[in-house]
Design a protein around this nucleic acid. Sequence first.
RNA 1: GGUACCCUGGCCGAGUGGUUAGGCAGCGGUCUGCAAAACCGCCUACAGCAGUUCGAAUCUGCUGGGUACCUCCA
Length: 489
Amino acid sequence: MEKEILLYNTLSRTKEKFKTVTPGMVGLYVCGPTVYGDAHLGHARPGITYDVLVRLLLHLGYKVRYVRNITDVGHMENDADFGEDKIEKKARLEEVEPMEIVQHFTIRYHQAMKMLNTLPPNIEPRASGHIIEQISLAKNILEKGFAYESNGSVYFDVEAYNKKYLYGRLSGRTLEDMISNSRVLEGQEDKKSPFDFALWKKATPEHIMRWPSPWSEGFPGWHLECSAMSSKYLGETFDIHGGGMDLLFPHHECELAQNNAARGSGGVNYWMHNNMITINGQKMGKSLGNFITLEELFTGSHKILTQPFSPMTIRFFILQAHYRSTLDFSNEALIAAEKGYKRMMQAGRDLAKLKTKEGEASKEIRDLVKGVYIALCDDMNTPITIAHLFDAVKIVNIAKDKGSSITKGDMEQLNFLFNDIAKEVLGLADEAVVGDNSAVLEGVIELLLEIRKEAKSQKNFAKSDAIRDKLEGLGVNVKDTKDGTEWAL
RNA sequence: GGUACCCUGGCCGAGUGGUUAGGCAGCGGUCUGCAAAACCGCCUACAGCAGUUCGAAUCUGCUGGGUACCUCCA
């Protein structure tokens, strides 16, 4: 914890020294998924970005409470079907309960996140489980005079709020700009100003997800859930709130406004936003035909893909870019990432086989470790971290190539880089490692390679190549080196 | 139209007022029965134009291109 971390704070638009509210403890809230569809590429980026943040904080000795919500209330289909709830629409079409849909996609989301080797949040609250807290928060804002009831719904009074606090601070807008650039939409007669947003919405007769409230049978506004749940589990002022840049406005802006309105403070010390992923330079969207789910990536079943890509390839690919940059996704870029990832993992495996001798760690390798910490603590610069790790890869490969031994000090430092940094902090698991229960598989492969060796020594290359090709076809990569044959899954 | 951000070598992507990111691909070499891997060497860019500066890819302005968000609902 003696290491100082810099984090870019969207609120100040600068990198700031990270100081926790409570020494040694970090409260982190991240906006989670709306569970009305399969996890897609867009979910992978925040999932991995904040996972690395959590892993880094844990590595540096912090105790972390990581809260990520599940949004399962009142979301609408945004592509068409104006006014219809996203979850309800699917439920009616498929004739199942809304909560069945929610459960189905929550489980699938968890599976996808696990495959990407992300740590589960410490608390995963559901919006539908916190209706009471949300009603209470809406009441509080009403009492403070920053909201009003209208026809069974409760709206946040942006103009009243703007007089005391500035609305738009987080997203870099001003209310005046917004007013001068707005279009007039239909169906908003209940509101005093078109910028007011709903805290509570009266349900229409066909709306089946509904709860009683002092104002009407209805459902909470979207922004309310994150304000209510983050303060419930992390306190009225907590350290970090993260999410995608697409949530900056209006969602986070409204959260900030709700916090200020209810308690007189913003409640969040550091607002972090990850940037978006584009596909072949284009935004991902269902209408553009480039919408891609994580499952399609893992299985390769999408027209823009020529092959499946493993979860760790995706993770590596995402970490090769800084989280605040847009990242362009393409089949070609993924192939490059896959090769780089495999090369790094191979070096990690080779490291364990290097011979050691007595001696201290060299300055070169010590500097790499230092450089890795500087990069990680500088607003989570994972691409530079990876660049340093490739320097370590090269050191391992040279030692292996020359058959030379390295000092025990160097071994310790290199182990640190490959295990503590690459595997633990970056979360890059080695997919080629055979699991504990695969001793049989290992034995069989060794046996086949033994037979192949015999064939080779008898210059029966047809037979030896056949064994190699068959194994290759089954996903076992065979390499002949000076020191014998190696293999990896 | 508004707001924010971006435009780097064949591709992906860091970074920076004056010195080499890194990965992938490519080329030449070493090694090898062949292949793969690895190693050595090569490929040295910063949208365009103008300005500030001893010096800019890095600062400023303009032009062009791109991305996200833009009052309901989520």
